[in-house]
Design a protein around this nucleic acid. Structure first.
Lengths: 297, 297
DNA sequence: AAAGGGTTTTGCATTTCTGCAAAGGTGGCG
DNA sequence: CGCCACCTTTGCAGAAATGCAAAACCCTTT
């Protein structure tokens, strides 16, 4: 039995398909299929039920999975034992909502990447909740604490959101002195039925009923605001990236949210993962603080 | 990093050489060397100090070793999880002193092998103490309990030894009615300076001072006795294999010894190893009992 | 009903890995 | 001193694994 085939097995079990596993591993799907076949031969057991829709775990594979994960953990410890106390290496995939992914992670990860040249960071911006248990990512930034799953959660930082618009828009439209003046303004926000977390329902919280222009992406919303398309709730830390965008009604409308860093419970014992999480947490905290401090009141 | 390379690393670390590891793994030494080189490249660390006399663990390799063993253990559990509750598979290398290896293990292992067709049993007969920690064998039968090492020991069975000779020899020489009559007889025994365990010093215990024909192998001694070369202390359980060999002076000279089964402490958690050990223990017990019962008083 | 995107599977050219044989070194022994 | 046994390393031919492209299939959508 080739030990490396167990690595492939894990990937397929998590991706539920040869092609998905291949993408993740950076090798061809046909190779993945052949390695799985070889493993099954060596073990004398059918590990997957193969359908044209993908590979699903067979009972025997189900039984193997936790042991394969134990091997993976041991393999991680082994690699850890060698990488010098200083540098971090390997791959790190971070899932994050796109606000964080666009305006915070690039800088934070750039610095991290610079400090650790052999570290390979992947930022996955997705408007949905991650399935960490399937290892779609090693860590995830979330806007609320998950309830289920073998996960470990830590608070990253608080951040604020305010109503904002481009100064060109503000000049061209009636002044906004109070909440009542919002009536008649064009609002920009999330697509209602694509809100994947209650914490994102900013507009409802501010009492706005209707938005003229919506997107599932905060960066698209931000771009719309920057182009003078209207008013919207935006992250304070994003505003410095958009010259000309000004906050309005900061006294009356002010939201506070938190980012949470979510990791696999199993990774808790990994010194590497702990260090990566800590570096990420500090980086994000510092970046949020830096950007919010830059705001023109 | 190829997970399978860690398997090669383990073998080299234990064999202290590429060629030894290659023999053990059944692959060529040059391949072993290249895989080690590849692993070192992937890990960015020199794992071995390479000399024309072999591969010795470098400090980094020393650090990696326990983690690699953890991976090995996890890999074992994984394979165990799949092999049906019934059958045993894989390789089992048993080290044993040659008395046991010649007259007990062949039958016992033959039955075991028949019951588990995918099990591959190797019997290593060696006139020395095994280095289990280097995994020269998975288990070892010993004539005394080891004191040091992370080992687990269990008593297999007691057995007896008596003075014996071929009936042709007895007919051709003066009768032996008591210990005193032994004077003048040709004795067969161990080579004095090659006795690797005090328990083997049979002749000294019986008061015999000198042996005319000696060997480091009990089966060679037995063969000599069978050919009528003289008298010697032999295992009772070996006598049924040598037609014509009779015990003498059974009342006055009778030795009792024990076999012990020694295993790695780490293997204690392996259900497979436990089952193998149990099967071996029962087989050896039954075989000793069967053979000793067959003796002509 | 047909088309499109997703999957697995298969055939083939290419790359990679492996085993063998020879070369080069080093320590032990007569 | 030279020889022998053992080790590693290197060069090369054959075997094996890999990636790519195409085919076959299923489900969803137009």
């Amino acid at each position: 039995m080739d030990w490396d085939d167990l690595r492939i097995f894990l990937a397929v079990a998590r991706a539920d398909s040869l092609s998905g596993a291949g993408r993740r591993l950076g090798i061809d799907a046909s190779t993945v299929g052949r390695r799985v076949a070889r493993l099954e031969g060596a073990l004398g057991a059918k590990l997957f039920v193969k359908t044209p829709q993908g590979y699903g775990l067979a009972p025997e594979g189900e039984r193997l999975l936790p042991h394969a994960e134990a091997v993976e953990a041991a393999m991680g410890s082994a690699q850890e034992a060698l990488s010098g106390p200083g540098d971090l290496t390997g791959q790190l995939r971070i899932g994050a909502p796109d606000g964080c992914a666009n305006y915070l992670l690039p800088q934070v990860c750039a610095r991290l990447s610079e400090a650790h040249p052999r570290l390979e960071i992947q930022i996955v911006a997705l408007p949905r909740v991650f399935n960490l248990s399937k290892r779609e990512a090693d860590m995830a930034v979330a806007v609320s604490q998950p309830q289920a799953g073998r996960l470990v959660v830590q608070r990253l930082t608080d951040y604020q959101l305010h109503l904002a618009a481009h100064e060109d828009y503000l000049r061209a439209h009636p002044p906004i002195r109070g909440r009542a003046d919002l009536r008649g303004h064009r609002m920009i926000g999330y697509i209602a039925d694509m809100i994947f977390d209650r914490e994102l329902d900013y507009l409802a919280e501010t009492g706005v009923e209707w938005a003229a222009l919506t997107s599932n992406s905060v960066s698209v919303q931000m771009q719309a605001i920057r182009m003078g398309a209207g008013l919207g709730i935006v992250h304070d830390f994003a505003i410095p990236f958009c010259p000309g965008v000004r906050r309005v009604l900061t006294d009356e409308i002010s939201l506070r949210r938190s980012f949470w860093l979510i990791r696999h419970a199993d990774d808790r014992r990994s010194q590497r993962m702990n260090r990566l999480a800590e570096a990420l947490a500090q980086g994000i905290r510092a970046e949020v603080a830096r950007l919010q401090a830059r705001l023109i009141p």
